[in-house]
Structure formats: structure tokens, C-alpha cells
Design a protein around this nucleic acid. Structure first.
Length: 356
DNA sequence: TCCGGAACCA
DNA sequence: TGGTTCCGGA
């Protein structure tokens, strides 16, 4: 039973510094198994997020519609990938969806009724679940909108007020690094503070690579000029690549994996996203209507400072496209040794959608 | 296709 | 705790 899966191997490297390199779509913590308090393994929603931001998997799963809403275009494939990740060769969509359903109660996810294979993230919950300290932050800053802990922590009611980008911005709008008088940012990029248990580690990991929904932005609108936040649930594509997160190196045969922290600053930042900074996810649900018209539709939050805009925000690397999840060798053969370990998505990409 | 209970596992 | 597996029901 032990499937010494890759999950055990992957996240060894102390690449913290790199984690803070802005430009990454999702904070590294999101991909680390340990990133989830209380959990030792990668969580399904982390996995889903990762797939969502990988261009290669657009044909399998992709953002769609509202904030945080995504559609599983190829349930079997997603299940297969999840199975690979968890060393559960017999995983299937039915099982995966059951796991997804457990997120309903946690309010991390909910089903978009009427749409097949369509779910929606409640980013505020996701954030709060992992970083209840937001609540503290809010209180500290005197922000009118208290970010109460999510249902997990006990609270806010059935539908807690969603986190809004504005709110978060306020909370985290720390002064740019080095700015005088600036209060210490809640989250600094300092390596020693990058502990998983530190508040919002991911805020600092900058995510500049989310694309807005098709209708809002170009296919890959990377420019989020108006906001300092870059968290965008719609990230897809050609964005900054993620660090070798969910998969072990051999899962990411491309250079990208190894070059994590060295992404060129080219990307994002510049492009249009001026301030690329790390970000945080904002509330998905409920934001809609309240969203200021000026804001983009996607929820996003960013932490200021981390590394400053100037940091290499954009680390965009294209290598992502080479991502291949093929190797399951990491899994101990135990449970799965199964024969047919799943084939790399890419490989199967031929199926139709993947890859673009 | 989706839901959620229940038992079970790591 | 976070699934995984099964399964009956809608």
C-alpha cells in the first residue's frame, strides 16, 4: 500500500526563494502537499488548480464562465491524471467527483448546476481555509470587512462574505518593498518566512499568469494593469510557469521544472501587468455582482511587495507546454503497479484537446 | 450525471 | 484529515 509516490519525492527541494519569484501563477504552496494545513498530501483541489493553469491541459479541464468556474472537459483524463498523481490506477471520474463533492461542504468548491462537469471554486474559502490569518490581518488593518475564517474555522455564516480583491488589496497592500513608512508587509519574501505555516505564503509567489476569461480578455490576456493582484482563476496558458510542483521532476521533463526560480522577468510584469505581484485568490462566489465594474472579472489578489513588481514577474516560460505526466515510476508498485499506468496526457493529447 | 452515505485507508 | 471505493437513489 504504500505507494511511495512521487508525492513523497517531489517537494523536497528547498526552493523557497524561487517560490517567491513573481510570475508564477500559483503559489508554490498550493502545489505542495504540505501546504495544506492538516494535510500531508497534495489535495485534489490543488491538483485541479494546477491542471487548470497548465496550458497543456486546456483540453482536459479549463476555466470557464464565472469566477473560479471550470469545466472538466475530459473527466476520464482528469481522473486518470489524478490517479497517477495519487498512485491510484483505478481512479475514475466517479471517484474523483466524490472527492470533489466533499468540497461542497467545505465550501471550497460547488457544483454549477445544469452544466455537466462544471464546478466552481470559492476562492475565498480556499484562501481562508489555508490562511485563516487573513482574519487577523483584517482586524489588524481595521478593514471594514473582516475576513472571518471560513466555515472551517467557524464562521461566517453560510455564505460568508466573499473576499474581494479590494479588501484583500487593502489588507495586503503593503507598501512596495522599500517604501518608506510602509508597514511591514504581511508577507515578506524572505526565505525564512516562507514557511508553510506562515501566512499567505502564496501571496508572495506571485502569480502573474492568469488569463482572464475569454470574453474578458484575449486568449491570454496577461495584462492586469488595473490591479496589483494577479491572481486569476482563469489562468491558463502561456503564462508563467509553475515550479515543479505537483509532479516530480520526471513528470516535468521540461526545463521549466528545473528553472523555476530563474524565470525571466520578461513576461508578465512587463506586459501589461505592471505590478505584478503575488497574489492571492479572492472570493469567487459572491464576488460577481459586487465586483466593481472597473475590476476585471476574475478574482485575484496579490500581495504587494513580494519581490516587488520589478521582480521577475513574468516569469513566463513556455516550457510548460512540454509538461508530461507520464512517469508513474514514482509510485511504488504497490497498488498500482498496474499495468497500465496512465499515459501521459500529452501523449494522449492526441485525443483532442490537449495541447491546444 | 450527480448526489451523498458508509466503510475503509494512509 | 482527505480522500478512495462502493453503492443506492434521484
Amino acid at each position: 500500500m504504500d505507494c511511495s509516490c512521487v508525492s513523497d519525492l517531489l517537494f523536497a527541494p528547498p526552493a523557497l526563494p524561487a517560490l517567491w519569484t513573481p510570475g508564477f501563477a500559483f503559489p508554490d504552496w498550493a502545489y505542495k502537499p504540505e501546504s495544506s494545513p492538516g494535510s500531508r498530501q497534495i489535495q485534489l483541489w490543488h491538483f485541479i488548480l494546477e491542471l487548470l493553469q497548465k496550458e497543456e491541459y486546456q483540453g482536459v479541464i479549463a476555466w470557464q464562465g464565472d469566477y473560479g468556474e471550470f469545466v472538466i472537459k475530459d473527466p476520464d483524463e482528469v481522473a486518470r491524471l489524478w490517479g497517477i498523481r495519487k498512485c491510484k490506477p483505478h481512479m475514475n471520474y466517479d471517484k474523483l467527483s466524490r472527492a470533489l463533492r466533499y468540497y461542497y461542504n467545505k465550501r471550497i468548491l460547488h457544483k454549477t448546476k445544469g452544466k455537466r462537469f462544471t464546478y466552481k471554486f470559492n476562492f475565498s474559502k480556499v484562501v481562508l481555509v489555508n490562511y485563516p490569518l487573513l482574519d487577523v490581518a483584517a482586524a489588524t488593518t481595521g478593514s471594514p470587512l473582516l475576513l472571518t475564517p471560513g466555515p472551517f474555522a467557524g464562521t461566517p455564516g453560510p455564505d460568508a462574505p466573499p473576499l474581494t480583491p479590494e479588501t484583500l488589496q487593502t489588507l495586503f497592500s503593503a507598501p512596495r518593498l522599500g517604501e518608506p513608512g510602509a508597514r511591514a508587509p504581511l508577507f515578506t519574501p524572505e526565505p525564512d518566512k516562507l514557511r508553510l505555516d506562515s501566512p499567505f505564503p502564496f501571496l508572495g509567489s506571485g502569480a502573474t499568469g492568469y488569463s482572464k476569461p475569454p470574453g474578458l480578455l484575449g486568449p491570454y490576456g496577461r495584462a492586469f494593469p488595473e490591479y496589483p493582484w494577479n491572481f486569476n482563476p482563469y489562468l491558463t496558458g502561456p503564462f508563467p510557469k509553475l515550479p515543479p510542483s505537483l509532479y516530480p521532476p520526471h513528470f516535468y521533463p521540461n526545463p521549466l521544472a528545473s528553472s523555476l526560480g530563474h524565470l525571466p522577468s520578461a513576461g508578465a510584469g512587463a506586459g501589461g501587468g505592471p505590478t505584478a505581484s503575488p497574489l492571492l485568490a479572492a472570493a469567487g462566489e459572491g464576488l460577481g455582482p459586487e465586483r466593481p465594474s472597473g475590476l476585471a472579472a476574475a478574482p485575484r489578489l496579490a500581495l504587494p511587495g513580494a519581490g516587488g513588481p520589478e521582480a521577475a514577474l513574468g516569469g513566463k516560460d513556455d516550457s510548460d507546454s512540454e509538461l508530461e505526466i507520464t512517469d508513474v515510476s514514482g509510485c511504488s508498485s504497490d497498488s498500482e503497479g498496474d499495468d497500465g499506468l496512465p499515459v501521459p496526457p500529452k501523449a494522449k493529447a492526441s485525443k483532442g484537446g490537449l495541447g491546444s
